[in-house]
Design a protein around this nucleic acid. Structure first.
Length: 291
DNA sequence: AAGTCTGACAACCGCGAGGAG
DNA sequence: TCTCCTCGCGGTTGTCAGACT
């Protein structure tokens, strides 16, 4: 049961780092590079746990760390990203050059969480409570307003869309063609989540009902390094955002990008999810995307 | 001036993912 | 396929400085 400690704690320094320790660590990493954190302390002559060394380097000593106050732009971005991703600090930090996940997390906890909370309660629009009382599921969904439906997206050219399951299960062999099939299906609902009857693609209120289907054809230009999922939109918890994460070098956090498109823009006039529109978005953006 | 409170941020801890053997 | 190990992440705690009483 007991978990093996990451290192023997006896005889190790704890707490704040001295400038001497910092110097040793920086010099060692300059010479030998990052990594092998477990081996680093004895080799460098530091009485610290490897984990502690890693943290100190990543959060404080790295040369590319940006110091100083978080700008308004950065703040805005953090709020938006948090609305989309939840507490995935490393991903958020990946979008803010020079900022660390720890820094962003701290900033959120001390400043932004309150600010956002105030905005929500003071803003007066009491998300979704007043309006329709469709069904309990909707209300429950709204209550969990910023909930990320699927925080851990499925890797590579797959889309998770709630409530397609039935269609998919009825036609498991048809995955390859699912996109065109769906986009061409007639659809009567004006907005995706308002009903569960009939055919056509609608994004429902229930986050529990997930399914997946293949969109390889749509994502050709991204080749394979793409993750995609849906999330409730921050300001309009009734709406779902499509979020794409471009994964580079096989790791989501390497230079992971994140882009999102409002579902509004991806519904055709008859209320159906328009995969052709999505395809256009992807191709356009891929052309401009330099990161 | 002293004590208390609060905010900011550095550091620690436990867990899970993923790679190596 | 399984086990072990390392690394990275996110939650939590500790510490310190400044504000307040």
């Amino acid at each position: 049961m007991g978990r093996r400690p990451c290192c023997a704690k006896e005889g190790l320094n704890r707490g704040a780092w001295s400038s001497k320790e910092d110097k040793i660590l920086v010099n060692y990493i300059k010479l030998h590079g990052e990594g092998k954190w477990r081996d680093l302390p004895p080799r460098a002559g530091l009485k610290r746990c490897g984990k502690s060394c890693r943290l100190r380097w990543l959060n404080y000593l790295r040369p590319d760390i940006k110091r100083g106050n978080i700008s308004e732009d950065e703040e805005e971005l953090i709020i938006r990203m948090h609305g989309l991703l939840g507490n995935r600090w490393s991903l958020i930090a990946g979008r803010l050059p020079g900022r660390t996940d720890n820094e962003i997390k701290n900033y959120w906890n001390t400043n932004l969480s309150k600010k956002v909370q105030e905005q929500k309660s003071g803003g007066g629009d009491n998300n979704g409570k007043s309006s329709s009382n469709n069904d309990s599921e909707v209300q429950e969904g709204n209550a969990r307003s910023h909930e990320v439906i699927r925080t851990k997206a499925v890797r590579c050219t797959r889309v998770l869309i709630p409530q397609l399951k039935t269609d998919y299960e009825n036609n498991p062999g048809g995955t390859a063609d699912m996109t065109s099939q769906l986009s061409s299906q007639p659809c009567s609902s004006a907005r995706p989540r308002e009903s569960h009857e009939g055919s056509g693609l609608r994004l429902p209120q229930s986050p529990d009902f997930l399914t997946e289907f293949n969109v390889d054809g749509l994502l050709l230009s991204y080749e394979e390094n793409l993750e995609m999922h849906f999330q409730r939109e921050q300001d309009h918890p009734d709406d779902l955002d499509i979020v794409l994460e471009v994964v580079e070098n096989g790791t989501a956090d390497a230079k992971g990008g994140l882009e999102s498109w409002e579902t509004d823009e991806l519904f055709s006039s008859n209320g159906c999810f328009d995969f052709n529109a999505l395809s256009s978005f992807l191709n356009e953006d891929n052309g401009n995307d330099s990161e």
